[in-house]
Design a protein around this nucleic acid. Structure first.
Length: 873
RNA sequence: GCCCGGGUGGUGGAACUGGUAGACACAGCAGACUCAAAAUCUGCCGGCCGCAAGGUCAUGGGAGUUCGAUUCUCCCCCCGGGCACCA
């Protein structure tokens, strides 16, 4: 009957068997009951779980189980973000089709997740590579096409020469591919875009309502959307330039500093600007410069520090107020993708324009003066741009205005003459979703020679992706598979060609949280159940998704709302951004191709002439020097993941979970180290032993709280105080580490408590119950077993989370600190309800206090109720 | 450059609203048990002075507000993250 030894494997298997057999985590809609949809970001099936997954899913599971025990109707689903490049890379390396590789990984990782005992409703599981899921990507894409939310555009795209694919702007980091690190080239390619900018203002404004999102994430999104209020100004072309002019004969620019309009000494257009192209066509030297800028991808890496270069076009515009001729330049620092692709050059009041003008001997005219003297420091002679606001000078009729008044007045004057107006400009750009890749959701379109681009009819969805292809690294295998691309035009029935581009995998993850509520529906993308469960009450995931995934999901939800498929706008009510789990990164860089990464477990350090050098050691003991690339988040692509399997096998899932939660608060970055795992295991074994030693001493009488002695009361008080703290730490603060610490303290007190009288043992029973309940969201298996052992018929997961007994928290005496001149000099025990006069007397009576008061009359005695008495002499 | 975080013992971290800095652990040291080891248990564990009681310094550095500052204000240094020729 007595299990003296803690055997995690047996305990955990038994608990999981119980939950599985009883469907403990099967979620059903229960209108009227308070629901709690708890979701962790679904994993990419890269092969094996790593510690980042364990951290993420344990946080979600703690909150899920806590909510469950607090009487809420809980849904915690799980699925797989299953499309993507790693599967293709693995296919090339191992000759296994991406589909098989992906599904094998899913099977393995699912087993790992189940072994960790997460309270997941597995009946709802799906993978984004399931046709029954991506069918609805395609269906909604067609709706977006109808609404004009999705559109085709030939544009300059970011081309990754290593992965042979187009990347979204957000997948380009410092001019390099986010996965390959390869320098990105610019290419012209027709592709599909989603009109996220249509929602820019709403996406920005609604951030204010996301009170339960971390400030940091909201700020990052706001910066990403990048709203700026400014003024559009149309500069009329000079007579000699009209031959080149656009339709309305003006060069449009956007500026946030209309107050500096009279300081314009040149105009600058991007190399891709129509005017630049037209001028270049007549000027070989200029053409050469334009070509250089467009090739310029190599320089994108350090674009902000690149020298400002330009060439004059020889063409001019007229200043809207002075009618002065202003020369147009082509400049490498003007972006075609922002504003109008052209700027007015005001060297006196803009850093970049200043650098450009200095380099090209263009005059500098100051039109804004400061009142502080800062302006004078930079003007004589011009040594820098003065970019602060101030008062206008040299500005004709607008002289003497404050900057903001000048902006208004100049905008109004331009507006009157039809040469400009105030407007808002966003940094956010439309989302290009076409990928020249095999392992993704096919874009459901057909190209017909007669009818053009024809949507696949709804009844023919899904366009199923063939699962047996093997990419070989030379472009998209779909484009080489006639059985896929050969088709018949739905309109004219003549032979046609199917679109072979697939969708960006961010599409797949932009709505999966909706589908978990109704993954079994074959007739609708989402049905009425989505209204019961959504929005997600608690979303948990890595901070690295702060911008892209979360912004795309907010956008997608709004599109579905506008299609009347949903009746809400924000998908995630509360967000917890889990800190990254970091590990060392080691790689070697071959002469050509991608880096080869090595797991830190296989790398050894060695001191060579005082500097540390790292070596990879293979199975035969051969050593290769490797480059240490600092710390980075655990991922398959960087080869630095730590598989939790070893920990789970050695100590059990509960220890792995406990360690992960105890070692640092959830939002904090964590540098991986398994030092301390042993301690977590030791603690669980102590819990086990405490419970079983207590039970071995025989039956326990019912607790009679009215007849407890001081020590019994004291322990009981600590237990209920701990319960209150744990409830607050898990439920409100989400600081699981301090909740665990509090229970450790309770167990330390319990261990010192040697009273084995019937009343003492009754207190002990209650203490152990509170400890077990408090730990249960974190270490559910051992808690399940201990709870049963403690004599409960009802299983722990179905037990209501208790409220602390207010009576138990009452105390007669408390400890107060006495400070003299701000320094702690004594601790005194006083009755809780002692009057201030009595406290003052007690404090001054303390010998050590007297020593420092030294007979002087206190100037001030400040009493902070229940905390301290501060004496000032 | 701009915008966020952060800097506390040998280590992870605690101190939630301005009120005992270092909870709880890890590692370490000493001891008990043991033929021995493991496991377990007990004690010590920021620096300096002191036999001790106690004192004193100490939360990246410097100033300030306060009876009292890890916490608030200002300046500076360092680390991490985001954005970055966005007009």
């Amino acid at each position: 009957m007595m299990q003296e030894r803690y055997d995690p494997a047996a305990v955990e298997q038994a608990a999981r068997d119980y939950w599985n057999q009883h469907g403990s985590f099967d979620a059903k809609e229960a209108p009227g009951q308070d629901k709690f949809y708890c979701l962790s970001m679904f994993p990419y099936p890269s092969g094996r779980l790593h510690m980042g997954h364990v951290r993420n899913y344990t946080i979600g599971d703690v909150l899920t189980r806590f909510a469950h025990m607090n009487g809420r109707n809980v849904l915690q689903p799980m699925g797989w973000d299953a499309f993507g490049l790693p599967a293709e890379n693995a296919a090339m390396a191992n000759g296994v089709p991406p589909a098989r590789w992906t599904r094998e990984n899913i099977a393995y990782m699912k087993k790992q997740l189940q072994a960790l005992g997460f309270a997941i409703d597995w009946r709802r599981e799906f993978a984004t590579c399931d046709p029954s899921y991506y069918k609805w990507n395609q269906w909604l894409f067609l709706r977006m096409l109808e609404q004009g939310v999705a559109y085709l555009k030939t544009g300059v795209v970011n081309w990754d020469p290593v992965d042979q694919t187009v990347l979204a702007n957000e997948q380009v980091i410092d001019g390099k591919g986010w996965r390959t690190g390869a320098l990105i080239e610019k290419r012209q390619i027709p592709m599909y875009y989603l009109n996220i900018t249509r929602y820019a203002d709403e996406l920005l404004g609604a951030l204010d309502d996301l009170a339960e999102w971390p400030e940091r994430v909201r700020t990052m999104q706001a910066n990403w959307i990048g709203k700026s209020t400014g003024c559009e100004v149309a500069f009329a072309y000079a007579p000699d330039t009209r031959e080149l002019a656009g339709a309305d004969g003006t060069l449009k620019i956007f500026t946030t500093r209309a107050d500096t309009l009279f300081g314009v000494t040149f105009m600058a257009v991007a190399a891709e600007h129509p005017l630049a192209l037209a001028a270049a066509a007549r000027n070989p030297a200029l053409q050469e410069f334009v070509d250089e800028c467009r090739r310029g991808s190599a320089m994108e890496a350090d674009v902000a520090t690149t020298e400002k270069k330009g060439r004059p076009t020889g063409y001019h515009v007229l200043h809207p107020f002075t009618a002065a001729q202003v020369e147009i330049w082509v400049a490498n620092y003007v972006l075609m993708g922002y504003g109008e692709g052209a700027v007015m050059g005001v060297p006196a009041h803009d850093e970049r324009d200043f650098a450009f003008a200095t380099q090209n001997s263009i005059p500098i005219v100051g039109v804004i003066q400061s009142t502080t003297g800062a302006y004078e420091k930079v003007v004589a002679p011009w040594i820098d741009a003065y970019t602060d606001y101030g008062v206008t000078v040299n500005s004709g009729e607008f002289d003497g205005f404050s900057s903001s008044a000048a902006v208004d007045a100049i905008a109004a004057a331009l507006d009157k003459r039809g040469l400009g107006r105030k407007r808002v400009q966003f940094r956010l750009r439309d989302w290009g979703i076409s990928r020249q890749r095999y392992w993704g959701c096919p874009i459901p379109l057909i190209h017909c020679q007669n009818c053009g681009v024809v949507p696949v009819p709804d009844q023919d969805l899904p366009v199923v992706l063939p699962e047996n292809l093997l990419p070989d690294g030379s472009g998209n295998p779909l484009a080489k598979t006639p059985s896929f691309y050969e088709c018949v035009c739905p309109k004219c029935a003549r032979p046609a060609r199917r679109e072979t581009d697939t969708m960006d995998t961010f599409v797949d993850s932009s709505w999966y949280f909706l589908r978990f509520t109704c993954a079994d529906s074959h007739t609708k993308m989402v049905d009425e159940r989505v209204k019961y469960w959504l929005p997600v009450d608690q979303y948990i995931g890595g901070i690295e998704h702060a911008i892209l995934h979360l912004l795309y999901s907010r956008f997608w939800t709004r599109v579905m709302r506008d299609l009347k498929l949903l009746d809400f706008s924000e998908p995630f009510a509360r967000l917890l951004t889990q800190g990254m789990v970091l590990n060392d990164i080691f790689y070697t860089q071959p002469a050509a191709g991608r880096r080869i990464f090595f797991n830190p477990a296989d790398v050894v350090p060695e001191e060579v002439n005082g500097t540390k050098q790292w070596y990879h050691e293979d199975d035969h003991g051969r050593r290769t020097p490797v480059i240490h690339d600092g710390l980075g988040t655990m991922s398959k692509s960087k080869g630095n993941g730590v598989d939790p399997q070893g920990l789970v096998e050695k100590y059990g899932a509960d220890t792995a979970r406990l360690f992960m939660m105890f070692t640092s608060p959830p939002e904090q970055t964590l540098e991986w180290s398994d030092e301390g795992v042993q301690g977590s295991f030791r603690f669980l074994r102590r819990v086990w032993t405490a419970v079983h030693e207590h039970l071995a001493a025989g039956p326990v009488v019912t607790l009679d709280v009215s007849s407890l002695d001081g020590a019994q009361k004291e322990l009981r008080r600590l237990a209920h105080q701990t319960l209150a703290k744990v409830t607050d730490d898990i439920g409100r603060r989400r600081t699981f580490n301090t909740a665990i610490a509090a229970i450790m303290e309770l167990l330390n007190a319990q261990a010192r408590f040697s009273d084995r009288t019937p009343a003492g043992r009754a207190v002990m029973q209650e203490v152990l119950e509170i400890a077990v309940i408090g730990l249960s969201p974190i270490v559910p298996h051992i808690s399940h077993a201990c709870w049963q052992a403690l004599g409960h018929d009802k299983v722990l997961i179905e037990t209501r989370w208790p409220a602390p007994d207010a009576q138990a928290l009452v105390r007669d005496e408390i400890n107060m600190v006495v400070q003299v001149n701000g320094k702690v000099r004594a601790n005194i025990m006083v009755p809780v309800d002692a009057a201030d006069e009595a406290l003052r007397a007690a404090a001054l009576a303390d010998p050590n206090v007297q020593k420092f008061v030294a007979g002087k009359e206190p100037r001030l005695v400040k009493i902070v109720p229940r905390k301290l008495i501060s004496v000032v002499v």
